[in-house]
Design a protein around this nucleic acid. Structure first.
Lengths: 343, 343
DNA sequence: GATCCCCATTGGAACGATCAAGTCCGGCGG
DNA sequence: CCGCCGGACTTGATCGTTCCAATGGGGATC
């Protein structure tokens, strides 16, 4: 198996090359890389020197072929980029990549029709291109999660299985109710008593979850909620219109919103009426988007602990791949509040 | 090579399984997948049916091993997320993933120290984990590009080789000067004659490029630029301070900024002085971030054609991998202006 | 001194695809 | 009738790693 002397310098060295140089067998080099504790100390040193000198790194393809795993995690990029999801998604992906790296995994991005047998989940899995998936958009009873669950595909969801609380796949989520309660509490502490809610359509599980935090906080203090809530689409304009109506009809002094997008709509309304956020009316958003951070005068917002979510996701992933049968419990994390001048 | 009858249902079928079922050899199945034109029509149909029935997809690892290519493109996530880069990066990554998919490639994300021999560029390349890289942050004479160039690693840069115009690697970039000129022209058309520039430090190649577009537009009409330009850090606060000084000392009626971040700073100043963007003073940003789109009253901004950049990058990548020796020319794309109410 | 055991190390055989040569066969020109 | 050609398909080797079973040598045990 010795190399021809005149081989092109671009061909990377193999296990056999290292073995020859170190005067050991291939398998010993393999062990030096994967199970160093099996080698005698001096042999290990010798092999490591040979590896260093030749600049060897194990060929991924060959390793993947033999071990039937790719050490890649598939992440689907959601096709539509909602404004709110955007900043959050980016922060999450970053954290996921970092955490995965520490666990010895890389992240593979893909897009397109998720059920396409060629390029979708199924194709990637059957061709052993990825070991597992991370599923992120679980907005309303995510069909992808159900599909993966059915095929017993290894995956971890960022988001609860709203449509099927008995689902046994691992998931990680952020407690939206706790976040909204935190936001509402914050306004209560500032002395507000009439606090409005602007959220999403009733069929949004996440929206209703967050809303429940708002109403819980108010009811705990015996404060009214009726007439103070509005359910609309997740657009700036919807937020603008909803807040205008609420201001006219219910005269709230504070707004808690299901997203920064909606909160931006409230800001528009205030600006149009010559009112000042943080002085005349308090506003709190959700997701702590970049916009919340840079806008004037700064938007208070519920911040999801995405770094921790990524850590838990990778944890679950490792558990899942190590013990495919074991059923892992879901994990719920608590968000924090980034307070700025809008409140 | 026939499978044992009682094999676990989780083991995916192989070429040999398909071959047996279709009554042909492995190689013929391989050809059916990769070079269908080599088969007789009826054989092709027979093989395709077998593939369909067994739900076969080629094992990526085996293919990668044999062909010495992974059909993966490495993309490094820049560790610091500047605000401006954020939205743009996200949009670019999306486009890149979509375009790559059409070309038969997937995108592999990685992070960490780029020169780490384990997990950095070198490691990924030597282990044949990726076929090539896309390098994005070329802000000031990117050391990564130089490093890759040196090692003759296949890569395409999004961003010109500012530090070495004679560099021969393929690159794609957006003409920042043209963008700033477009923005300035737009304000000139609106009747403004005193138009200020807020940009980055002088050692930023990109910043100086954009600035040159502003000054070119003004000089063409014989309008003054002296005293109307400011060079600061890329933060909201710097933009706020710079615009305050400029307003006091030079009395401009319009601002063109090197980034949306700086433009946000201008908006803050205007708000603090009770002035209204788009009425009292016009403001134009750069990058068309999400914030520019949702803020009140909407920020006019130069929009980079990132979808086209991704297409050109993938084009270059394909050319590069098909003909490693050929030197591909750089490609410069022209941005557009997203006009909103701030101007 | 023979036996047993354990540890470090070895060599052959996969993993599942593609590459590079074959082989087979019908047709066609001389 | 022979030889040659080219299309359609097959066969063996190979990519570089890890799995598996086996080997040899050096104590410790009896």
């Amino acid at each position: 198996m010795t190399r021809m002397p005149g081989r092109a310098p671009t061909v990377p060295p193999t296990l056999a090359d290292v073995a020859e140089r170190a005067g050991v067998s291939r398998q010993t080099v393999s062990n030096a890389v994967n199970n160093p504790e099996l080698l005698r100390a001096d042999t290990l040193v010798r092999v490591q020197e040979a590896i260093e000198e030749l600049g060897y790194s194990p060929n991924r393809a060959a390793r993947n072929l033999r071990t039937r795993s790719s050490h890649l995690i598939g992440l689907r990029m959601s096709p539509v980029q909602e404004f709110t999801a955007n900043a959050a998604a980016d922060r999450f992906v970053h954290s996921l990549v970092d955490t995965s790296r520490e666990a010895g995994y890389h992240v593979l991005l893909f897009s397109g029709d998720p059920t396409d047998p060629e390029s979708g989940y199924d194709g990637l899995l059957r061709s052993t291109a990825v070991d597992a998936f991370v599923v992120t958009d679980t907005y309303l009873g995510n069909p992808q999660a159900a599909w993966l669950r059915e095929r017993r595909a290894p995956f971890v969801a960022f988001g609860r299985p709203w449509d099927d609380p008995a689902a046994t796949h691992p998931w990680v989520d952020v407690d939206g109710a706790a976040g909204a309660e935190l936001a509402t509490q914050h306004l209560l502490d500032k002395g507000h008593t009439r606090i409005a809610w602007i959220g999403w359509r009733k069929d949004s599980f996440i929206g209703e979850d967050r809303r429940s935090g708002w109403s819980r906080a108010l009811k705990e203090r015996g404060l009214p909620t009726t007439g103070l809530a509005s359910r609309v689409e997740d657009t700036v304009n919807s937020g603008r219109e909803a807040s205008a109506v609420l201001l006219d009809e219910a005269r709230p002094t504070g707004f808690v919103c299901a997203s920064d997008t909606l909160a931006m709509g409230v800001m528009h309304t205030l600006a149009e009426r010559g009112m000042h956020a943080g002085e005349d009316v308090a506003v709190v958003g959700f997701d702590d988007s970049q916009t919340a951070q840079v806008m004037h005068p700064g938007l208070t917002s519920v911040r999801q602990p995405l770094e921790d979510v990524a850590i838990e996701v990778v944890n679950a992933l490792e558990g899942l791949l190590a013990h495919p049968r074991r059923i892992l419990p879901g994990k719920l994390l608590v968000p924090t509040l980034a307070v700025r001048r809008s409140s």
